[in-house]
Amino acid sequence: MRRIGLLGGTSWESTVGYYRLLNEGVRDRLGGKHSADLLLRSFEFAEICELQEADDWAALGAIYATEAAVLRDGGARVLGICANTMHLVYDDVVQGSGLPVVHVVEAVADAAQAAGIERLALLGTRYTMGSDLYPSRLAPRGIEVLVPDTEDAAEVNRLIHDELVLGQVGELSARRLRGIVDRLVARGAQGVVLGCTELGMVIDPADPTLPVPALDSLTLHVNALLDAALEPLTTSLEEGAA
């Protein structure tokens, strides 16, 4: 397999999920004692948050481009950004590394399209929900993105930053999030994307009581990374960045 370079730590709670699922995926696909060939750059999350809050995406892009090049020089041949929000500097990572970078939204778009979803509700940080990150890649597929109203969006962002990134899942917050999903469904959502890699801690996509399918961006991203890392070396993936 190609060596996978991970830009993680945002937060480390979900990066642990990437590490576990990538290793489980390689074991399941290759069998025996096989495990994932990985390099991880785990950022200090507080420093990243400060730059996000300052709206200094240029600085974040420069940091991620530099660290992506370090992963490349360490032998990585496929890269993954272990967060939805930080895909806002995706182009910087591609340019800094010159490697294929597997985009989380493309993985979600593939799953949504396969499920026949045309109106997809998006849950994530305020940066993800308030940007063109998802619409820019879903609209060409004929998929409309719905986001929560102002009050509900603030609650989703609070849940992520005040609880989930700290490894906490409050029962009241879980009920509130379920209510937000119900309101999005009432607006016509045919599915909901857990567009923050920590949201799988509070919503189980396999929950049969969910009113619509839930797409877990972390799991879908991991599967796309495995596809890229395990594709035959003769494919076009070797020719340049995705």
Rank of each mutant, 00 (worst) to 15 (best):
R72D: 02
L38M: 14
L71G: 02
K33C: 10
N157S: 15
L226M: 15
M201L: 15
S217K: 08
P211G: 00
G74F: 14
D149A: 13
G80I: 01
A65W: 09
V156H: 06
A107C: 12
V212H: 11
L225R: 07
G25Q: 05
L60T: 03
V102G: 01
G167H: 13
L39Q: 01
P148H: 13
I180S: 12
V94W: 00
A107M: 02
D55W: 11
R72L: 12
I48K: 03
L226N: 07
P208K: 10
L51I: 06
A214H: 03
D91H: 09
V181R: 01
G32F: 12
I203D: 03
A242L: 13
S217M: 02
R141N: 05
L159T: 14
Q52L: 10
A68V: 08
M129Y: 13
V105Q: 00
S42P: 03
I180C: 11
R77S: 08
G31Q: 01
G179I: 10
L166W: 08
P135E: 12
S131K: 09
Y90C: 05
E118R: 15
A62L: 06
V78A: 04
L30T: 01
S131V: 13
E231I: 02
V101M: 12
R175K: 12
G179T: 05
L51M: 13
I81N: 00
L230V: 13
L60K: 01
Y90A: 10
R3E: 13
P232H: 04
L226K: 11
I4F: 09
V222E: 01
A112P: 13
G179H: 11
S217N: 02
A115R: 14
L146N: 03
I117F: 11
P205M: 14
L159A: 02
S97L: 04
G98V: 10
D227L: 12
E239H: 12
G17I: 09
L120N: 11
A121N: 09
L79Y: 07
L184N: 00
H87C: 07
G188Q: 13
R29Y: 08
E13A: 15
G80S: 09
T10M: 15
L21R: 15
A114L: 05
D132P: 02
H87D: 01
V222G: 06
I180Q: 04
H161M: 13
Y64R: 02
N157V: 07
C49R: 14
S136F: 02
T234I: 04
A206Y: 03
V145Q: 04
D204K: 05
Q95S: 12
L177Y: 03
L199R: 00
V192N: 06
W12Q: 12
G17F: 00
A186P: 08
V89N: 09
I180L: 09
A139G: 01
Q95V: 09
L99Y: 01
L237T: 09
T209F: 11
T234A: 05
G61P: 00
A228F: 04
V102N: 00
N157C: 11
L138I: 07
A58C: 02
L133S: 05
K33M: 15
G179M: 05
T85W: 04
D227I: 07
Y90T: 03
V101E: 03
T15Q: 05
G9V: 07
E231D: 06
R2C: 03
F43H: 14
T85Q: 03
C82E: 03
E231A: 15
V26F: 06
V94S: 02
V181Q: 02
L194I: 12
R29H: 00
I160C: 06
V202I: 15
